[in-house]
């Protein structure tokens, strides 16, 4: 009996935590509409030099057939894309081309895959496939975090007041 009332008390005091966790899970996992654009063939020429890719940011739609042409203007550079099994290597003054289907949505970093100098580990570009829903979900989670802070503060001051009285 005693443990039952302790449990009830605990649930009563911490109801807001369950609510926040539930909302957070909803924000993270709720399915969002995919873009309805028809898949297209897209060609991008990416120029690599120490320690940058030009363009540094590429935006495509999900399902697009992407042909990347990597041109190196100084030393040997590579280009690999996080989350995709894709790599290009270009010798100085040369280019290399390959094609892949952008079937995963989100923002993916592409990196130089051949050591090209001191700043090589930070030679990074970004490929955005479809809308960046992860960023949107992150922003909504941030709003929820602020809301949770208000609830948590109100709850703890309520407990303090009732303890004092």
């Amino acid at each position: 009996m005693k443990s039952d009332s302790v449990l009830k008390n605990l649930v009563k005091k911490n109801w807001w935590i369950s609510l926040i966790v539930l909302l957070a899970l909803l924000i993270i996992f709720i399915p969002l509409p995919q873009s309805q654009n028809d898949a297209a063939d897209r060609h991008f020429q990416v120029e690599a030099s120490m320690f940058q890719f030009i363009p540094g940011r590429i935006q495509v739609n999900q399902g697009d057939r992407i042909t990347l042409e990597l041109i190196s203007t100084d030393v040997v550079h590579g280009l690999s894309i996080d989350g995709y099994d894709f790599e290009l290597i270009a010798d100085p003054g040369q280019s290399q081309t390959a094609t892949f289907i952008a079937n995963k949505t989100g923002v993916f970093r592409f990196r130089c895959s051949i050591a090209c100098g001191n700043m090589h580990p930070f030679m990074i570009g970004k490929l955005q496939v479809g809308p960046n829903w992860v960023l949107v979900r992150g922003i909504i989670l941030g709003v929820l975090a602020v809301f949770a802070a208000f609830l948590s503060f109100r709850q703890s001051s309520h407990i303090q007041k009732s303890t004092v009285s």
């Binding site: 120490m50 320690f51 940058q52 890719f53 030009i54 540094g56 700043m119 930070f122 570009g125 970004k126």
Partner: peptide
């Protein structure tokens, strides 16, 4: 972590 090559240089 950004894609801005000129900033890195």
């Amino acid at each position: 972590l950004g894609p801005w090559g000129q900033l890195k240089t």
